[in-house]
């Protein structure tokens, strides 16, 4: 186990290294740079100066070595789009908000999704099942900018129950959290429901459950003890990534509901060629994902002891 973990941690470092190299190469190879003003370009002398100031005049490999050298000392540079703060400050300011939103959405999504999926599986091929399938299809196929827009129209503009935006910990009303959490939870909730139902149906039909039933165990005990447990493997695989996905911020929901989270920076840093932020966000995502995968691999062994880590 210790050896396995050690191997995975080394793997994490390798992944981060490869990601950093790839990110660096990709972002420098796409057209446009951080200081290309669109209305009228900077005069060459001024541009040369600002490139020098940020070390962008040096060869790529040298820039990379400098970056990594600083990064290893915890210095991830200054964001080009928000030069009044370091990348670390910027992430420390915005990420907690995204984490709060993400965690709330995860709780809502998993509870509602699991419940809906279990009910649909038990009541397979009844109208309840079809309704769950229908709603989860909607949850997956209706883009959430549409959902966000209609929720906003109904509950903020027509009914006036909740504000159009803001976030409780950032000076907003507590009610400002309701719409974004629902919007964000709907998709994952539908996914959870789909996978739960699918795996449960599979397991319910399998022979050992039939055997268990034949042995006279009541349906509820069978379902809770065996079925759910066996349905967990594909769910962990599919749903674990929802967690880093949700807690790294989701640009659209954050933007439309005015939540000052990290989400928009995943897009704006690329659009604005904000190199230090591109690197930081990519490394953050890589690290989060590697850790999530590691945890889900460990979870497999907990859920199903026959699975061994090797």
């Amino acid at each position: 186990m210790v050896r396995y973990l050690l191997g995975r941690i080394i793997g994490l470092i390798i992944v981060l290294f490869i990601v950093s190299v790839l990110a660096f190469l990709l972002m420098h190879s796409i057209p446009g740079g951080p200081f290309d003003e669109t209305k009228n370009p900077l005069p060459p002398a001024a541009k040369a100066n600002i490139l020098k100031k940020y070390g962008l005049d040096k060869p790529i490999y040298e820039q990379y070595i400098n970056y990594m050298g600083n990064a290893l000392h915890g210095d991830f540079g200054i964001s080009f789009q928000s030069p009044t703060e370091t990348v670390i400050d910027l992430i420390a300011r915005t990420w907690p908000v995204s984490i709060q939103l993400g965690l709330l959405a995860i709780i809502v999504a998993f509870t509602t999704g699991l419940a809906a999926g279990i009910i649909a599986a038990i009541k397979q091929n009844t109208w309840i099942d079809y309704i769950v399938t229908f709603i989860s299809t909607l949850g997956i196929t209706v883009p959430n900018f549409v959902i966000a827009l209609w929720l906003l129209l109904i509950f903020s503009i027509q009914l006036g129950w909740v504000p159009t935006g803001g976030w409780p910990t950032e000076g907003g009303e507590w009610t400002s959290a309701i719409l974004p959490v629902i919007t964000l939870a709907l998709g994952p909730s539908a996914l959870v429901a789909r996978y739960t139902r699918s795996s449960m149906v599979e397991v319910i039909r399998s022979e050992y459950i039939r055997t268990a039933r034949a042995k006279g165990l009541s349906a509820r005990v069978v379902i809770l003890r065996h079925t759910l447990k066996n349905a967990l493997i594909p769910m962990i695989t599919i749903l674990a990534p929802q967690i880093p996905n949700l807690i790294t911020g989701t640009i659209f929901v954050e933007v439309i509901y005015r939540i000052p989270g990290l989400g928009k920076f995943f897009v704006s840093s690329i659009y604005l060629r904000d190199y230090p932020m591109i690197m930081a966000t990519m490394l953050l995502v890589a690290a989060l994902w590697s850790i999530t995968y590691l945890l889900s691999d460990i979870l497999y062994t907990v859920v199903d002891p026959r699975v061994r880590l090797s």
């Binding site: 196929t141 209706v142 959902i147 996914l191 599919i238 929802q242």
Partner: peptide, 11 residues
Amino acid sequence: MSQDSKKGLSR
């Protein structure tokens, strides 16, 4: 966007 929050790729 629910539809693509799907899998790991979703990010």
